[in-house]
């Protein structure tokens, strides 16, 4: 499979799920359980990406104060719980990452 086929594939797989309900507007209803399952998708997938990116460094699990990605993620997690504010979470997370890196290296 060449790269341009990957682009076309990504384009279709991004576009088609968005388009189908619009195209069918007013004609069909999604079953309740499926709509519930879809609602869990962002939580499941994004959490896996977060945990793997923060915890797995250089192909192994790194639970350590020396892991700035993990420390900044934990701080960002608490900021997000307290404030529920996306922009603030990003800013505090980035600042604590920079701080941690400048202390460690």
């Amino acid at each position: 499979m060449t790269e341009w086929m990957l682009i076309v594939g990504m384009m279709l797989l991004t576009f088609v799920p968005r388009y189908i309900p619009f195209a069918l507007a007013g004609k069909v209803n999604i079953p309740d359980w499926l709509s519930k399952a879809l609602g869990f998708v962002p939580i499941a997938v994004l959490t896996i990406i977060i945990v793997q990116s923060a915890l797995i460094r250089d192909h192994q699990v790194s639970i350590s104060l020396q892991n700035p990605h993990l420390m900044a993620s934990i701080i960002a997690f608490f900021v997000a719980i307290i404030t529920r504010h996306l922009f603030l979470t990003i800013i505090v997370g980035l600042l604590s990452f920079l701080l941690m890196k400048s202390i460690l290296f």
Partner: peptide, 9 residues
């Protein structure tokens, strides 16, 4: 990572 945290939490 932190942006995803800010979206998920």
């Amino acid at each position: 990572i932190v942006a995803f945290i800010g979206i998920v939490v």
